[in-house]
Amino acid sequence: MSSLPTGLKGRAELGVALLLGAAGVLVFLDASRLSVPYSQSDPVGPKTVPFIVAGLLVVCAILLAVNVMRGGKGEAEGGEDIELGHPADWKTVLPLAGAFVLNILLIDWAGWVISGTVLFWGSVLALGSRHYIRDGLLSVALSLLTFYGFYLGLGIALPAGLLEGIL
């Protein structure tokens, strides 16, 4: 569980500071357009807490930027299945995210059984399994099982979509 190779990584964390700063500014701008009706029952008003949160975020952003510039860096998280020796494997993550997005696009139109199959199959393949047929069958089975399980067991009707009437 050693630290990742330095170099590129040291500066990438500035993106986190940027994100924090942007979030802080966003919270501030959003809160400043709120109107504050004067009222005896709510002296704090809707703006105070957002302003505090925005301040916290901006201060953290600045301190983090300073910290990173001075060479500080956050420790990447370890775990059972995690090997930090090599850089992030985007060839796995991006297809995985792709399968997820596909599911979002399909779920209302094509229904859970189809979109869930796409999600599981896509994820398994992205994660490196090469049993195409077996994985496909497994995906269909899992989607059908959860569809009926939720409908019959929990009374939650997941969308049937294209397969409406068949299921």
Binding site: G79, I82, E83, L84, A88, D89, V93, L96, L127, G128
Partner: peptide, 10 residues
């Protein structure tokens, strides 16, 4: 899941 996918143990 995404994090593990990026660093899956070989």
């Amino acid at each position: 899941a995404l994090w593990v996918a990026a660093h899956l143990r070989r």
